[in-house]
Design a protein around this nucleic acid. Structure first.
Lengths: 148, 148
DNA sequence: TGATTTTAGTTTACATGTAAATTAGATGTC
DNA sequence: GACATCTAATTTACATGTAAACTAAAATCA
């Protein structure tokens, strides 16, 4: 590799790179605990509110139920969660933490670690502005995609 | 689903959601042209500078060569690009656009479409601040991950 | 020059995401 | 009550990303 190729600033590209870097940081943090970020997201929902259904987990995590199905398979065979039937509705499945899953609940603060690093070099003022800006951007995009 | 579950604001989560939403928008844009975003990223490098090696493509796109190898397989069988040997270095492989690949070069401006939507609801002033803020965040994260 | 180390690319194994089809169980309407 | 429709979850097929092993070729160096 000799020269770096310059390209026009793409906000999407930057957001994507930044997001992936933040995810890598989270994965680094979780790796010693043999947990993936995807699994952490599920656990973080259950730590706050055990016994959610798959659909509720989907709403919370933004993952499709198809993705969750398989993810939960792995988490179940790792002994992190347990599926249970619902009396009233035989289609529905509730997900419960096992002791092992509950035992990792101190990791609920992982995102603070990532937050801290992300915001290291921003002034107080910038930090205050950032969240609403990102939320407005998300709104704009979601309006164009799926929820118009 | 009855109640929405509230959770503390995680910058990583927000960035991730935003990034994924922006990617979905890009995929929507590209779908009619039978192109994935990953493929577009490769093509966008080649449109600017045809005949890059796999390593150079990796540097440009941020993708690992392992990921590129298979991606290029698919793009090759779709007739978008062509691999060619390098005289001086038999290990190296250069990637060239085919006519079909070249013919899609008007899509190089796709990211402007996404940029436009992302920035719709930000003031001029906010837009000016955003890029440097995101770049500083990226710097902070990369310092902690892999490039310290 | 011959052995060792680096480098470029590929391959393999696995985790994850999406879309579309499938299954089983509710619901609604006549 | 019977049939049509909707819903919850799963399954399947496929694209993509990572890490680690592998291959072949170049570069280093003793």
């Amino acid at each position: 590799m000799t020269e770096t190729i310059s390209y026009l600033p793409s906000m999407g590209r930057l957001l994507n790179t930044l997001s992936e870097a933040a995810c890598s940081l989270a994965e680094d943090y979780l790796r010693p605990h043999d947990l993936s970020l995807a699994q952490w997201v599920v656990l973080s929902a259950l730590w706050r509110h055990d016994g959610l259904s798959v659909s509720e987990l989907s709403d919370y995590s933004g993952k499709k139920t198809a993705a969750l199905s398989r993810l939960l398979d792995r988490m179940e065979s790792k002994g992190l969660v347990r599926r249970s039937a619902v009396e009233d509705d035989k289609r529905s499945v509730k997900i419960h933490l096992t002791e092992k899953g509950q035992g990792l609940s101190h990791l609920i603060d992982m995102y603070r670690y990532v937050n801290g690093i992300l915001l290291t070099d921003l002034t107080e003022e910038e930090q205050k502005m950032l969240l609403p800006m990102l939320e407005r951007m998300l709104q704009s995009v979601q309006t164009k995609h799926g929820k118009p």
